[in-house]
Design a protein around this nucleic acid. Structure first.
Lengths: 334, 334
DNA sequence: TTGCCTATTGAAAACGTTTTACTTTTGTTG
DNA sequence: CAACAAAAGTAAAACGTTTTCAATAGGCAA
């Protein structure tokens, strides 16, 4: 039924080894042999079985990117960076989704343990730091976007604490004294870091830290909407709202607009991630931009280099972020 | 270096065959053997090499979903449906992106030819109908969301022509006489179908087909913005605009709003896909909803059933769509 | 005791490659 | 023309599993 290298060898009147050499562009094979083999491959419509090849070579030239879901277009650029970096070195990137389930995450990592891929990158780990640390010792595993406290693993991310600080400080610089924060109940390290940055900025500016001003929800638009509603119902309203993601921030702004609040004037809004919709929304959202493409590219480059090295790099690399000022903070820049 | 089944066998004092039987939960193996093997597996931290296993069984229990990119969150639900269906049958779904490059699409399909996956689903084919038809004869290949004229392959989609018709007819029903269409220059079958539906609705209503009212751009927000600008500059403006995607429609509405047009009153807007942002935008966008989850679920169920069948199903299945009316057509429904 | 059946086990083949180790052919040089 | 090196080829081992086939052991009836 299936055409194997043996069939090609027979058709080309050479040995199996010769076929293999031709296919792998090795030297030590005559022009006639090359031609005969190529003709046979063509005629038979042969394509080599990767399982056999990969087993023998014990490498697959494939890397698995593990994300939570493809819902957040935010990942798209990161993955593009990963693919570009991988592709130039002859690797393919496959994507799989955990759907926020740590068990499923472990199931996917099985592909790594069982050599179905050469390496893996976690973009939204649900497993705990210790477990991942342990795995990173044995396998070619890395993290991107999200770091984990005390986790010894190659990790490429941004300084989320500093980014939270910068965003908050910018709002303070615009004369705001009561700044709300909408974050998540589920504590990913990035949201913890961003929250810490927010708090440090308040401290540095001598502003009081009012726990009332912090709303804990989830990553959704609806949560942003709800969070803003709660904040606006306080005796003394906030005059600015920093959200740890753009989607949340858009939800928050929506509440404000629907309730007659002048966004960018009465209340300033600041998001995080610079997703494409943040500049499509009216008014355009000011936000923190991460170097998505670069993070993806970097993590793959390092991971592949780790795969060749005897002594793998398990450090955390923080790439620079930047602030993008738009209408929601009263700036008119595009 | 690596722990293989042999090491486990040695440690458990049984043969390799017995270990394999225990691992695969076969009968005909004594309790003692089971325990000894499990203990050894535990102690050595053994996990079976899938390459060996898959080669021997010549099946991987993996299916590849090939999309253009993860940028459009629209795919997310489809993939979720695919994964649910696959997972209940013991399959995993891997995702790979073509980045709109037919050559790269072929490269990814290589994983299918070379048995690295058992089947594949194309969600945004760039290859031509004939090529895909040919491949579908030899491999377990299916399509989802997008059909291809004259392509003999298992395909799960919606009736895009009818959907385009329905949306346009709705606008006509609201008394609109000059309806603009913003579509794409690159002719995917779905956009052709939607455009045809638009035209049929005009014909059926006895409205003239004015080529001026059709703008050909790409799938982006910017293209929608630009398209709307062109349409609004016509001597006689359209009183409604149908776009073949929500992102385009949001771009179009943005132009309108920024230029003082009363959206939902002066001009109605209709999108396509019901992406999450379509109800976050202000005003909320009326749109065509596709059964994303169901399409994904269905295509995988059929594909897996094809993998077991002698005579595979190569028909096109069209699932029902529906209209969602929101503020952009003057409806107040959520 | 003998014979037979069943439950468990193990040795070895098989899956499709690549690669090693060895043989044959070709070509060059003195 | 002998000697030898280089080039081109082959057979077989190896990768890590599963599965086939045969063998062993144990139980039980006669």
């Amino acid at each position: 039924m299936n055409i194997t290298i043996k069939d090609v060898a027979k058709a080309a009147n050479v040995s199996v080894a010769t076929v293999s050499r031709v296919l792998n562009k090795k030297t030590n094979v005559s022009d006639e042999a090359v031609q005969a083999v190529n003709r046979a491959v063509e005629e038979l419509g042969y394509s080599p079985n990767f399982l056999g090849r990969d087993l023998r070579k014990s490498e697959t030239k494939r890397i698995l990117a593990i994300i939570a879901s493809t819902e957040h277009s935010f990942y798209s650029e990161v993955l593009r960076g990963m693919q570009d970096a991988a592709y130039t070195q002859g690797y393919d990137v496959l994507i799989a989704t955990t759907r926020d389930d740590p068990e499923h995450e472990m199931h996917l990592l099985n592909m790594l343990f069982s050599k179905a891929v050469d390496g893996a990158v976690l973009l939204a780990p649900k497993l705990d730091s210790k477990t991942i640390s342990e795995l990173a010792k044995k396998y070619h595993l890395a993290m991107c976007l999200e770091r984990l406290e005390g986790c010894e693993i190659l990790c490429v991310t941004i300084d989320n604490e500093q980014a939270g600080y910068d965003a908050t400080k910018l709002l303070i610089g615009k004369g705001r004294k009561r700044i709300g924060l909408i974050t998540t109940k589920v504590r990913s390290q990035s949201s913890i870091d961003r929250e810490n940055g927010y708090k440090r900025a308040l401290r540095d500016a001598g502003l009081p830290l009012d726990e009332e001003l912090i709303y804990y929800g989830d990553y959704s638009y609806d949560s942003g909407f709800k969070g803003c509603e709660e904040l606006m119902r306080l005796k003394t309203r906030p005059d600015a709202v920093f959200s740890i993601s753009d989607t949340i921030s858009i939800g928050a702004m929506t509440y404000a607009i629907r309730n007659g609040i002048n966004v960018g004037k009465d209340v300033l809004f600041f998001g995080f991630d610079n997703i494409s919709y943040s500049h499509m929304f009216i008014p355009r959202l000011s936000t923190v931009e991460q170097p998505c493409y670069l993070q993806g590219k970097t993590v793959i480059e390092r991971l592949i280099s780790n795969m060749k090295a005897e002594d793998p790099d398990r450090s955390t690399i923080m790439l620079p972020h930047s602030l993008i000022l738009r209408e929601s903070t009263g700036d008119s820049t595009y």
